[in-house]
Design a protein around this nucleic acid. Structure first.
Lengths: 345, 345
DNA sequence: TGATGTCATGCACACGTGTGCAGACAAGGC
DNA sequence: GCCTTGTCTGCACACGTGTGCATGACATCA
């Protein structure tokens, strides 16, 4: 039996509307009675019903977050940033992990609509256009993080992946590498394409050709996919002397694959990651990677969404907005000059 | 302008109660009208309001999950298991990360009470007794996972950490180690104590003494804490030949510390983890660890909670229940016999 | 034909909170 | 003393859904 404002009203001898106003801090209520009511509420351990409130106000004070998976340390850091900003503004989070499964995604979207989430942040790299359209039609304010389909949405936060990938590639070229491969994740849509584009641009700028076989895609983010990928690349007649990996997790698998093949990183082969997840500093050798400001991306996304909610309560149309954040190259020990006498078969 | 059952009622020419019944599948409504109503609901893209429904039914169809942090791969795998079971039963998750911060914890508990969560699963190793009491007083069905304060709660899922820790320790002893240290995480409450107890038991059984300095605690789970810990242990006059780490993340830091100190794992020193998080297979060398059935723990916890909800709608008292799950030793390459000629200073 | 029963539907109220409006009351000015 | 003004509080309704009870239509049977 939870206590309601009616119980408080009965106890303090006022009407429930007075209680409602007093607890919301309405200046209409005299200070004396407001104080009495607040005290009673405290004594009776009153807690407002979120359901009743959001039913009446049509605001749930909840933000929906759609991520590919929460296992992924990259996403969990972004979510952490979102939570920081949301909590500060008195909002709660409703997190859904799509796991790259359309059925699951559909359920998440539906749940968010049923809960009348005030807005949605999409972090999922593989979010289906259908679900996106559904969210848009429903009228959710939507902010998109690093998303492939971002062109359909008006508000987005991007990390400059192109720039990052170029810096990584340039770093390898400057070390003297000429045979560089790119290992991507085909499920990451636009993100992997951006990084691939940066890679190609820089290779082209250095007049280096990329054999077709040097661009390899696997279908997942975990280290095991990196392991699969490097095994493929090492079977080539002319294996690369450096691997640019889509992200740190793939790179971890690649490191393992190199060790298993008897290669020393970075003496025999250089490996780079991307994102700078915590673990990338603890691999052997520590990964050269690109430090993406993950937490900031999350906070910025949440702030942007909250701004939309504050200034756009009546659904008027706004200027589209795109925020681009920059990261920085982090050179550790997984990269070095290529071996002077490369093995040939 | 979202559509409500009243809109559907107007459109189909029936009363809103008929619509409500039809959509809930009430057999009172004739098949023909039910079909007509369902079609109209589909056409009008009707989605029930979770707020209104839970206000009326006093059930939110939401389970609260309190975790220490979502960054932690160990917890995210448990949460994944919880989500699996919850979704299957038509429940959504409300996840809160306490980050070992009492203020944050307080906010999470309050939010769960305001949202009238149907039940709560506590995965946080450092959950304060105050908050726990508050949840209990509120009348939530609560299931606790691996929790230090589990004695206050009636329903809990445990992994047999004692057994795991004993197996790990025995493994090292059988390899010939005699100077074995334990590196714990002081924030993990009962969990670290259980593992320490297992370690001590097995050492005692083998007539091995443990110098005080061989039991070292750090205040966190991340690899950086492992790094700090091993640096301490290596400064000892008689450093250990093997380190039993509280979990895999600490072990990752320990591995790095060993490399930095010029030690070869496992030739010079053996290192063990605990939990078998994904990354533990990709360290160098791959970690010997104890494989905890993380996902099962999550699913079991959720199932237990759901059972409580189904069978206990009127708040009657139940038999306390404690489910213990067992894991298994996973020997990889971070453990070997101790060096034959140990260095002495 | 009227009584009885079955089936389908509507009426009215409830859940807990928020809010426009009216009304009560006191103080002050004429 | 009456009117105005300002301050405070209560009434009544609303949000969207669920449900007990009454009502109405219709068929069946005596």
């Amino acid at each position: 039996m939870t206590t309601t404002i009616k119980d408080i009203a009965k106890r303090t001898g006022v009407s429930h509307s007075t209680v409602s106003r007093a607890l919301r801090g309405d200046p209409l209520i005299s200070f004396a009675t407001a104080k009495r009511i607040r005290q009673a509420a405290k004594d009776m351990a009153y807690l407002p019903s979120a359901a009743a409130r959001s039913l009446k106000t049509n605001r749930s004070q909840v933000l929906g977050v759609i991520a590919s998976s929460i296992d992924d340390p990259f996403f969990s850091e972004i979510v952490f940033g979102i939570e920081e900003a949301a909590q500060e503004a008195g909002y709660r989070l409703f997190i859904g992990a799509s796991q790259h499964d359309p059925a699951r995604e559909q359920k998440i979207v539906q749940a968010m609509m049923e809960h009348r989430t005030d807005g949605v942040i999409i972090c999922s790299s593989s979010f289906s256009p259908d679900q996106g359209r559904q969210l848009l039609e429903y009228g959710f304010p939507i902010v998109v993080v690093n998303h492939q389909g971002a062109e359909n949405f008006h508000y987005s936060i991007f990390h400059d992946d192109l720039d990052g990938s170029r810096q990584i590639t340039r770093h390898l070229i400057e070390l003297g590498h000429r045979r560089i491969a790119y290992l991507g994740n085909s499920l990451s849509g636009r993100t992997t394409l951006d990084r691939l584009a940066g890679f190609k641009t820089e290779m082209q700028a250095a007049d280096l050709t990329i054999p077709n076989a040097y661009i390899h895609h696997v279908a997942g983010n975990g280290p095991q996919f990196g392991l699969d990928g490097i095994e493929q690349l090492l079977t080539l007649n002319q294996p690369p002397t450096a691997i640019v990996c889509f992200n740190d997790m793939l790179a971890m698998g690649v490191l393992k694959g190199c060790h298993m093949a008897g290669l020393i990183v970075p003496d025999d082969i250089s490996v780079t990651g991307f994102d700078n997840i915590t673990f990338s500093a603890y691999t052997h050798p520590p990964l050269t990677t690109f430090d993406q400001p993950k937490q900031s991306i999350g906070t910025e996304a949440a702030r942007l969404l909250l701004d939309l909610l504050d200034t756009n309560p009546n659904g008027s149309v706004f200027q589209p907005k795109e925020i681009v954040l920059k990261g920085k190259l982090l050179v550790r020990n997984s990269t070095a000059a290529p071996p002077t006498a490369p093995k040939t078969h």
